[in-house]
Computed example of a mutant assay.
Amino acid sequence: MFKNKGGIIYLVLLAITIIVVIFLYFQYGGDSEVNEQLSNKAEITTFDAEKEKELKEKADIFFASVSSLPKQDISSEKVALGKKLFFDKRLSKNETISCNSCHNMNTYGVDNIALSPGDTEEFGNRNSPTVFYAHMHAMQFWDGRAKDVEEQAGGPILNPVEHNIPSEAFLEERLRGIEEYQTMFAAAYPDSAEAITFATITNAIGAFERQLNPVSRFDEWLDGDSEAMTAQEKEGLTVFINNACITCHNGAALGGNMLQKFGLNGDYWEHTMSEVIDNGVYDLTKEERDKFKFKTPGLRNVEKTYPYFHDGSVEKLEDAVRIMGKLQVANELTEEEVQSVTAFLKALTADVDDEFKE
């Protein structure tokens, strides 16, 4: 009865194989959308030379490399003082946090959490953006209420939820009592009758932040090195430009130069799953036209500065790209386009030198 046992086992295995193949075909084979998504995930490995030439011409119109920016005339004494202040927890009332606590130099100028705890461990209501390249922006804070990094530096210091310093005079008196600061401020501001003031404190912090301009592979490509970016990244830049992302994300910082409504083509919270609906600039102006407007963030180092958006509601860069396509340019990006744009954005990653870290 069992003389043909091997043949029977073979037939059984063959039958199982056929059943599995048929199941997979009907499950996935007839689903053209799934097949397209799977094939779209294949990395793009070639990029036509003529196409790259045209892309470079467009990129030169919309962007600028870090190396092309004018040199800054800032003394080394101011930068050294600004760095010390940036890392000093004595700039918070209870001496629990520093500027670096929320804008960590070791993690691309952010703390990688949605909302940051302050001096009293109370959380702020908006995500802490990176200080890398921030001085290139036309305005500061998510609502654009500060004109530059020097003015911005004073905001968190006096904010009761952040550094919790009661007044400018309180901090001035504290630092004036520290011998090291007496020496450093005198060297950085030799012409001042009183070197340690709230204005010189924020000016020095700004001087430090203005040094945070690392060169990315995208900068190298803009400067003429065609091998600095991969074919996938160049394709992503093409998609980025062709889908009008450059309307808001342009210039040296790839953003930071305008206020824009988040949700031009829908309610943003339905896509970000935000727990709180933030009215943006409207909270300052009470003008209906400013509802849900925020400063467009710069995209440099966006790979490393998650979570995303004003409330840190989105963790993954790919998801942020999809959401921006839907809400801002009314375009359902294909999976291939999402992967390509994400690849391009990663070409913007660059870390600062160790000299700027504690």
Rank of each mutant, 00 (worst) to 15 (best):
Y282F: 11
A330C: 05
D191V: 05
G30R: 10
I165Q: 12
Y25G: 08
Y108L: 12
V215R: 07
M184G: 04
G280W: 08
E220T: 05
N213K: 01
H137S: 04
N100R: 09
N100T: 02
E233G: 08
G155S: 12
E180Q: 13
L284M: 12
N164K: 08
G154Q: 09
Q27A: 14
A231R: 12
E270W: 11
K83A: 02
A188G: 02
T46F: 14
E209K: 11
F344S: 03
I22N: 11
E77W: 12
E162L: 13
I97W: 06
D354I: 00
E194P: 02
R126L: 09
N35K: 15
G255Q: 04
G154I: 05
G224M: 03
S128A: 15
V79S: 00
L317C: 06
T305W: 01
K89Q: 15
D88Q: 12
S75C: 07
M258Q: 00
F132L: 15
S226Y: 07
S313D: 13
F123W: 04
I178H: 06
Y189R: 06
A253L: 09
N4D: 05
T200G: 08
G251P: 15
N243T: 15
A253G: 05
S39G: 11
T305Y: 06
F240K: 09
F23S: 08
D225A: 03
E270Y: 14
I205R: 10
H249T: 10
V21K: 05
G256E: 04
G298K: 01
G118N: 05
E50S: 15
E162A: 05
K89C: 08
T230Q: 12
Y306S: 12
A49R: 06
E77V: 06
A59C: 04
N40F: 11
A244Q: 14
V276I: 13
T200M: 03
A15M: 07
N265L: 02
D354G: 14
N4A: 13
G7T: 10
E303N: 03
F356A: 11
E355W: 00
P117M: 15
D353W: 10
Q152F: 00
D354C: 09
A252W: 01
N40W: 10
D31S: 07
I8F: 02
E162I: 14
V110G: 06
M324Y: 08
E77P: 11
T202V: 15
V314Q: 06
L299S: 09
I205A: 04
K41S: 03
V110Q: 00
D111V: 14
E121G: 03
I19R: 00
R300I: 00
T202W: 00
T296C: 06
K71F: 09
W221A: 02
F63Y: 06
R217K: 13
Q37L: 01
E33W: 10
H135D: 15
I19D: 01
Y108M: 11
